[in-house]
Amino acid sequence: MPLVWRLSPPFQHIIERLDTVPGVSVRTAQVIIAETGADMTRFPTAGHLASWAGMCPGNHESAGKHHSGATRKGNSWLRGALGEAAASAGRSKDTYLQARYRRIASRRGTKRAVVAVGHSILIATWHMITNNTDYHDLGAAYYLTRTDPVRHAQATHRPAQPTRLPSHPRPHPLRFIFDSVPSRAA
């Protein structure tokens, strides 16, 4: 019997609670507990845990402009386990994490989506262990229903604008250049 299985019975209730998060398996929950510990008081906020684990977004600012930055190195074992869990959550059906993965992957790519969903899983883990609560999934329709329904309807159901053609065609921008070139007489 592996050492992890022999040492996990005192943390069995936390492992079972973490197993309810989409994408997190028993093995991933054991890695989270093994790397962070069951006592989350060493991390004052969930952001501190994410920063320590290296699952927070990078921040690179130069000359007042914000550029994308690389994530920190962090804990490689925890990052790997959260990456696997995030990829698995991205393939789950009708969950908040799947909607978040799809939303980010379509705009920024799958690798950034994996880091973002892994960050969300880690933040949820911190809250579940600290507050002794169960995972509450927001649902796949979270991003569709979080705005005011009237504003959402106005934004998605705008009346079509009639296409207006100009009353006279615009001249070619180089027309005047061609007009000023003397023609060659043979």
Rank of each mutant, 00 (worst) to 15 (best):
A87V: 10
K111I: 08
E61M: 12
T133P: 01
P22F: 03
L174A: 14
P169T: 05
V4M: 12
G47W: 08
A124W: 01
T20R: 14
I104M: 09
R42F: 13
R17Y: 02
L138T: 03
I121H: 00
T133F: 06
R100I: 04
W126L: 01
Y101C: 02
Y143Q: 05
A113R: 00
L97G: 00
A113K: 01
N131P: 10
K111R: 14
S92R: 01
D19Y: 11
M55T: 07
K65Y: 09
A86D: 02
L18H: 03
D94M: 06
R170S: 07
R108G: 02
Y143R: 03
H119N: 15
T125N: 00
Q98P: 02
A89L: 04
G118V: 02
Y142S: 06
P159H: 11
P166G: 09
V150N: 11
Y143E: 05
A141E: 13
P9Y: 06
H157R: 13
D137E: 10
H172F: 07
D94W: 06
L18V: 04
H172C: 06
K93V: 15
V117R: 00
P171T: 08
A63M: 09
R42N: 05
I177C: 08
W5K: 08
T130F: 10
R108W: 07
P22H: 01
V150M: 13
H172Q: 03
T28P: 02
E16T: 05
S88A: 13
R103Y: 11
E84Q: 13
S68M: 11
W52V: 00
D39H: 09
L78C: 00
F11H: 14
S76C: 10
S8I: 10
R175C: 08
P162Y: 05
A46P: 01
A29W: 04
M40K: 09
H13F: 08
R108A: 13
R17D: 04
G47Y: 09
I15L: 11
G69N: 09
G58T: 01
A113D: 01
P22D: 03
A141L: 13
Q12W: 07
V150S: 12
P9C: 01
K93N: 10
T163W: 14
H60W: 05
A34D: 13
T133I: 13
P10A: 05
H157F: 11
D179H: 09
S51R: 10
S51I: 04
L144P: 07
W5H: 14
A70S: 12
A153Q: 15
R103K: 14
Y142W: 14
A105C: 09
P44I: 04
I123Q: 05
E35A: 01
F43P: 00
L122T: 00
G90H: 02
R91W: 13
A86W: 03
G37W: 15
M1P: 06
P171G: 06
R42A: 09
Q98W: 03
G74T: 07
N59L: 10
S76V: 15
R72G: 08
T41G: 04
T145F: 08
M55G: 00
